[in-house]
Design a protein around this nucleic acid. Structure first.
Lengths: 222, 222
DNA sequence: CAATAGGCTAAACACGTGTTCAGCCTGCTG
DNA sequence: CAGCAGGCTGAACACGTGTTTAGCCTATTG
């Protein structure tokens, strides 16, 4: 895990200055948002502001490097968790703290809409669609009239809920991400499961009315 | 409607400079986010930057004035739509364009987490809770184990979906809000209604497992 | 050993942006 | 009419922040 993420402060001194800057940037961007100053990042990395420019050319260059790094790690972890035995996956879940900076960075990307945000989002939608399709084939998930749109809605609503919860915090610019995540799950797990298994409405009136409206009559109408 | 919102450009010249500045600020903040410059707002209002300071003291003061104005209008419109006849409500829905700047401003507030954002959000949660309670009493809405958390989840997920959709746009800093809203509804109405009337899972396995986990055994377990 | 390259720093620079300031114009008031 | 208050302007100011620059130090290399 440590070697995978290179985010632990214990071995920070071992890393090259370039890597230390990048990791400090990911942490700062994730915790405080992308408006953090280059000077702050440099200080966190124990380095002069000039060196940041020397290695990354500009703030955008630094951002780009962070993007690439985060995306690459997410890619690697995902491939591992698919191929490896369940024990490894469980380890990942158990050590959310280690991934927290990455997740925080990703959430900030969703919030602001950078290239990583979009790429990660599209991947997330695709994953959810595949997952739902598999569940549908296994009979655990109800079929949808438009699986693509459903997957997109589920991704958007859950990620979005996270964003709103983030913005509604007392100080959205300084978050303890692991804590925040835990509280969020604690707060929403029940209504989410309720909604997903029992629905909200007791009848089909709204849905059928909409289906008629868009010209796709509900089954059994004609 | 026009006299209510004072957002139409047709009678912009009639308004006092102070009101014109405030309206221009609401429009700009809503369309481009809160990082728009005072100079840009002043130009839009046909006024010098100094005058903005003269009337509002600071950028924060301007923001505060916008907050108050938006909140006050939302309050007034809401009270009207509750007391007035249905025809008026329909008029409101039909003329989304007129409200768009206000809505855009509110969404930006949610995104950034200002005081208005929080206040509007809490009010929204309360409204949804009341609405669901009424529906439950009328037998149209299923009961929940925790109506408060359910209302919060529904508010968060729908608002949040809007935020994510906003961030994933090609240029999130320059949105045509009415168009954006229409596309969003077009895209999500179906999966939303499907989910709300039919649910997602075919069985109660996930929900029951969670209820057991949190120490609240599902009905019929003992 | 001398030279060179590259990691690295401190200081200066450029520029956008919120804010301040001195004063102009206009319309009201005594 | 004279004076004054307040809306209003244009220019200047202050400051934060990304970026540039000149040069130092160290290690490698011929």
């Amino acid at each position: 895990m440590f070697s995978l993420l290179n985010m632990s402060s214990a071995d920070a001194s071992d890393l090259t200055a370039r890597a230390r800057i990048r990791d400090a940037a990911i942490e700062h961007f994730g915790r405080h948002g992308f408006k953090v100053t280059i000077r702050a990042i440099a200080e966190k990395a124990g380095v002069s502001p000039g060196l940041v420019m020397h290695h990354f050319g500009s703030k955008d260059g630094l951002r780009k490097a962070c993007d690439d790094h985060v995306f690459e790690i997410v890619h690697r972890v995902k491939k591992e968790s698919v191929t490896a035995d369940p024990a490894v996956s469980l380890q990942h879940v158990a050590h959310i703290e280690e991934f927290a900076p990455l997740l925080a960075y990703a959430v900030r990307s969703f919030q602001e809409g950078g290239s990583v945000g979009l790429a990660l989002y599209e991947r997330m939608v695709a994953d959810i669609r595949d997952y739902l399709a598999a569940g549908e084939a296994a009979g655990r998930i109800r079929p949808s009239r438009d699986p693509g749109k459903r997957a997109r809605w589920l991704a958007e609503s859950s990620m979005g809920s996270l964003l709103v919860a983030l913005s509604m915090r007392p100080d959205p610019d300084d978050i303890d991400f692991p804590l925040f995540l835990r509280e969020w799950m604690e707060e929403h797990m029940l209504p989410l499961l309720e909604l997903y298994t029992e629905g909200l409405y007791t009848d089909r009136q709204m849905l059928d009315a909409y289906l008629l409206y868009v010209g796709d009559p509900p089954a059994g109408t004609r």
